[in-house]
Simulated scan of single mutants.
Amino acid sequence: MTTNNLRANRPSGKIVGAIFTAILLTIVTGLYRYVPVDERLADVHYYSFGYTFTITLLINLAIFLFLIMPLSILVDGLLMYRRRNNKYFILLLTFEYCLLGLIGGVIFSAFILNFDTFTAQTIYITVGSLVFLAFQLICNRIFPTTRRK
């Protein structure tokens, strides 16, 4: 069985997609948490953008390289058998990556033993898995691998 038509299962696209996703979500999170100097309170400590960026990038890289990427390999393996003559493949792929994000959120919450913010973590990882899917598909279109004969 060949998998040349399935563009979501190439390892180079997965690695680059995971790194780009981690960087994009880190920038968005850093900008969301940043408090401008004008609005800061006098007796409250605020972390700098660089510190927030660095810590969030490390956490996001760990999540996407060691949790989401291996789970996506499993999902792509399951989808490989449904590829033939399936006109709803993109919808199925999106649903499976949403499910992947939900499972990743549960695993991440169990790993850090924090179920107080379970919903927020699960939504963050689910959105991240969809962004990961988009970056992965874009990277595989831009940098196609050579086919073996």
Results as ranks from 00 to 15, higher is better:
Y46K: 04
A120R: 09
L25F: 15
I103G: 01
I112F: 01
P11D: 13
V28M: 10
P11K: 11
L24K: 07
A110S: 15
P70T: 00
K14P: 13
P144D: 03
N85G: 04
N85K: 03
V131C: 04
N9E: 10
E96I: 11
A42E: 15
K87H: 05
L137W: 08
N140I: 05
E96V: 09
F132H: 13
A134D: 02
T2S: 15
S72P: 05
N60D: 13
N114H: 07
L100R: 10
T26H: 08
L130I: 08
R10I: 09
L41V: 13
A110D: 05
D76V: 01
R148W: 07
L41F: 05
D38N: 09
V75H: 00
A42R: 10
I73Q: 05
D116G: 10
I19Q: 08
I138F: 10
M80A: 06
F135N: 00
I142C: 07
L133A: 00
G30S: 13
Y46Q: 08
L25G: 11
L91T: 12
C139M: 08
L61E: 04
F132E: 07
T119F: 09
R40E: 12
C98N: 09
I123M: 06
L79E: 00
R7V: 11
V75A: 01
A18Y: 14
T21R: 06
S109C: 09
K149C: 06
R148D: 04
L65F: 04
F53R: 14
A42K: 15
T117P: 12
A42P: 07
D38P: 03
N140T: 05
T54L: 13
R84S: 13
S12I: 14
S129W: 14
L65Y: 05
G105W: 01
I27K: 07
F89N: 03
L31K: 05
N86R: 10
S129Q: 14
N140K: 07
T29F: 06
S72N: 01
T3W: 10
N4W: 12
F118K: 12
V131S: 07
L100D: 05
V44E: 14
P144L: 01
R83Y: 04
T146Y: 10
Y51M: 10
K149G: 07
A120Y: 14
I142K: 00
I15D: 11
H45P: 06
I138C: 09
G17L: 02
T94K: 04
F132W: 08
A18L: 11
L71K: 00
R147L: 13
T126E: 00
Q121H: 11
R147S: 15
Y81H: 13
I107P: 04
G77C: 03
A8F: 01
L58N: 11
P70F: 01
F118S: 08
F66E: 04
F49M: 15
V106D: 11
G101M: 08
I63H: 05
V106N: 10
L78S: 04
L137R: 05
E96L: 15
R83S: 03
T119N: 02
G13L: 09
